[in-house]
Design a protein around this nucleic acid. Structure first.
Lengths: 236, 236
DNA sequence: CAATAATCGATTGTTGACAATCTGCGCTCC
DNA sequence: GGAGCGCAGATTGTCAACAATCGATTATTG
């Protein structure tokens, strides 16, 4: 999306933000509410109720909901209702298998262009994640881990890849948040990312590839253990 | 103009699919108009004009346009206007590079499960494509080629992968259609797909991988030759 | 004549009301 | 007492009017 075309509002952070439209603001708020667990997976989302809560009419709210449907966070049935997606075991397995492919693809793109800025950026985000884990701040660690991986995608400059990652990230975050609420501790273990970053900065691409595959496999195993009990909510 | 909603209640019984809503119908029609070239890349798309043309109000039309924006066919600037995307050289290069990754991933998934139904389906679609090429029906060959590749994605049963392919397919078709209108002959050469299908049914995965990479590289070269002259429309 | 401010047309963003459809519940009828 | 029918409530789909914003054109001023 071309949002940086004209950037003249450099310093004016006044009450009025003319470029902003209700749709994006509401989409952000609703997305946050879902990912935060205020609206739990499977729960129904009613337009009229939300519209009143947000203080807008149904028009912009509908468009925001459409966007979240496209992001895979909501699912709607015409004339009937809209619900927060409840991911099944297969859904999460798909997410993790896709992540292996996308992330290896990302590193293929930047492998020869891993300059000092990239290395520093990656280490900085790894340090931030480690700090969150050590502080046992699960909510923050979710965001930190997404930012670590997101940094890799951004570094490629591959707009289509970044767009694809965006479409997956929401669902991944939805699952992590649910996992966190159910288990208390989520689970990005420190040593796992230590190895990941080490390989990402090494000169052995095959080793990194193996590490990514293993990294996702571990995440996938956690997933299945977690979701087994609830047995096929059948989202999508 | 406003009688669209009232006409549907009359007469015909069986033909009506109750689940259908204006949004999807309009999205289909508008998408077809864009991919068909009735609305050319770079052209502005005005809500009020289209709404009248489709015989609906701006509400459903807006939602259909939002969907096409998400599919990457339109790009909108708040309060200003919406235009058909005009792909740049980099955009198309990204599409082709992404296709290599996704399609290899797809074959990884189905490699051990290529049963007789898959083989027959693939050959059937290849025959259909070949027929279109021999008949020099470029428009049909575009659809046929998309169906050939789409069949592979569908065979995986990987919903997330299929969804990702869907998000790319529209832009790919947009480019192919523009290429076709400009060059007359588009370019899915027969021998290229012969090799592709042969490898897809073989037992040599690495050979298929190489063929896919080469297949896309050829498409990419055509692209650059075609788009070079127009120099950076800078869509996105 | 050049630079800046005011204005106007065009387009999208937003709203509240109305219509169509689905789902669940009670009712009749056998 | 069970099966089918019809009604009512709830929810989404659709519409036409109104408001906000942008881009360009024109008027103004030094």
């Amino acid at each position: 999306m071309a949002d940086g075309a004209k950037n003249r509002a450099a310093g004016s952070v006044l009450a009025r933000v003319p470029k902003s439209t209700f749709r994006v603001h509401i989409a952000d708020g609703l997305r946050a509410a879902i990912l935060n667990g205020d609206i739990q997976p499977g729960a129904q989302v009613i337009e009229t109720a939300l519209a009143e809560q947000f203080g807008v009419s149904r028009g912009p709210l509908r468009e925001a909901m459409r966007q979240l449907i496209d992001e895979g966070l909501l699912v709607a049935v015409p004339y009937t209702g809209t619900h927060v997606v409840d991911l099944s075991v297969d859904d999460v397995r798909e997410i993790y298998s896709m992540r292996v492919t996308l992330e290896v693809f990302a590193f293929e793109h930047i492998w020869e262009r891993r300059d000092e800025a990239f290395r520093r950026g990656l280490v900085a985000r790894h340090d931030a994640l480690t700090a969150c884990i050590d502080a046992q701040d699960d909510a923050a660690s979710i965001v930190a881990e997404l930012q670590l991986h997101g940094f890799v995608y951004e570094a490629t400059g591959h707009k289509l890849l970044i767009r694809t990652w965006d479409s997956i990230r929401g669902r991944l975050q939805l699952y992590w948040a649910a996992h966190h609420r159910a288990h208390g501790i989520r689970g990005p273990r420190r040593d796992g990312h230590d190895r990941y970053v080490e390989m990402a900065l090494s000169d052995d691409f095959d080793a990194l590839k193996a590490e990514i595959t293993d990294h996702m496999a571990r995440g996938g195993r956690q997933t299945e253990e977690f979701l087994r009990g609830r047995e096929g909510p059948g989202a999508g």
